[in-house]
Amino acid sequence: MSALNIKKGTTKHSAYNLRPNFSDVDERHTLAILVDNEAGVLARVIGLFSGRGYNIESLTVAEVDHTGHLSRITIVTTGTPQIIEQIKAQIGRIIPVHEVHDLTIEGPSVERELAMLKVVGSGDKRLEAMRMADIFRANVVDSTLNSFVFEINGAPDKIDAFVELMRPLGLVEIARTGVAAILRGE
């Protein structure tokens, strides 16, 4: 993530990078958005993405401050640096949005996702699934005589790898939470 080496904005008083490098290469950015937890706020954010043709790779949302009624939305999106800047500026215009953080630029940050996988099988396949789960530190949260439900958390790449391994071993269903991300200390 730090290899992207994107210059920070030079306009001090703005949350946005107003002098970006204008590359044509798509980049993956993780945005953390702090919003008032009020009816329709998620629709405003999502509507912005669909209305203006931006991508959403992953989206999570939950209340993070019960007394302050604040929710945190984590969006993973892709676009050229110009598009990413435009996305942040457009999100910033939404009235219930308090803060927009580009963790990819402000980083380093930690990204985690939780997934649950239902794997059905017997014999060697069942044993192999169990062994793989051990290696990936996945937990068994439900079991029958011919199925497991594994719970795994980690960076999205790790989950992708685990999912690919489980496919030939009887994977029948996946539920993923989407990415939650936070800046590292200080």
């Binding site: 306009t11 008083h13 703005s14 949350a15 946005y16 107003l18 002098r19 970006p20 204008f22 110009q82 800047e85 435009q86 500026a89 457009q90 910033g92 215009r93």
Partner: peptide
Amino acid sequence: IDPSSINKVIRCDIPIV
């Protein structure tokens, strides 16, 4: 006054919000 207007269409050298 709107940061989203800046660099939306035309690359700008001196942005002033």
